Simulated assay, not measured.
Amino acid sequence: MLDRYGRTYADEAGIRLTDQPGPLFQLLVLAQLLSARIGAPIAVAAAAALRAQGWTTAQRLRDAPRSAVIASLGRSGYRRYDERTATLLTEMATLVLARYGGDLRRLAAAAGGQVDRASDLLQEVKGIGPTGAAVFLREVQAVWPWVRPQLDARALTGAERVGLPRDADELARLVPGDELAAFAAGLVHISLLGKKEEPLTES
């Protein structure tokens, strides 16, 4: 399962996730894009396009020309939501700068090691609800060990589909901690497969 499906959305978007302000902000951008009612491949492509433009920090994205952000989103297939999302991204960057100095490690500090508190703080960003917060936390557990194990409802659905326990703690015991983000991503990918697709059969 890890070999076939264990690639995080951050990895797909070209984000080399580390516990540094730039990559953490890029992950938040990705979580924002994945929060819209649009296919994950389009959201991932849009995140990659924004990175390619050099808008890799809160400061750079806040200062980016709105028309250029809209155009970049549109070219990625994000047309239905491009203007609204451009506004949300600018507001998000502004909030991250004002509240955390552009560094989401300060959000982690404000959460005080409480995952529920971190989720609440993430949802103070306009446009990010429970789903977006879950995406961020599921992926950031790769570099924030205190978040582990982060296996949300979508991941648990994937686990059930391949006969694994529908319990986060039991699932977490199946892989090393530093592989939990990839493991969770694999389970999410499986949950999104068509009903007639057999996830683990030989292709």
Rank of each mutant, 00 (worst) to 15 (best):
V135M: 05
P149W: 08
W144E: 05
V135F: 15
G113V: 00
G132I: 13
A153N: 04
L156G: 00
G112V: 09
Q141S: 13
G132P: 06
A108I: 04
V115T: 10
E139C: 08
P130R: 13
F136Y: 15
D120N: 10
R138Y: 11
A108T: 10
A159G: 07
Q114D: 15
G127I: 05
V135W: 10
A111C: 10
A155D: 02
P145A: 03
L156H: 01
F136D: 03
A110C: 04
A111M: 07
G127Q: 04
S119C: 09
A159D: 06
T157F: 00
A159Y: 05
Q123N: 12
E124I: 02
P149C: 13
R138S: 15
G132Q: 11
Q150F: 15
A111I: 09
G112F: 12
L121G: 07
T131I: 05
K126W: 10
V135L: 04
A108G: 07
A109G: 03
G158F: 09
T157S: 10
L151F: 15
Q114V: 14
T131E: 13
D116T: 09
T157N: 08
G129F: 05
V125I: 15
P145Y: 04
A110L: 04
R154S: 09
Q150E: 05
K126Y: 14
G158W: 04
A118N: 06
R117Q: 14
A159K: 02
A111T: 07
G113E: 02
T131D: 11
A111N: 07
L137E: 02
G112M: 09
W146P: 01
A142C: 02
W146N: 06
L151D: 01
V135A: 01
W144T: 04
A153D: 03
V147D: 03
L122K: 03
A155C: 10
I128M: 14
W146L: 08
V115F: 00
A142S: 09
G127H: 07
W146Y: 07
R138I: 12
A111K: 06
R138T: 15
W144S: 02
V135G: 00
Q114C: 10
A118P: 03
G129R: 14
V147W: 03
G129E: 11
G158Y: 02
A110N: 03
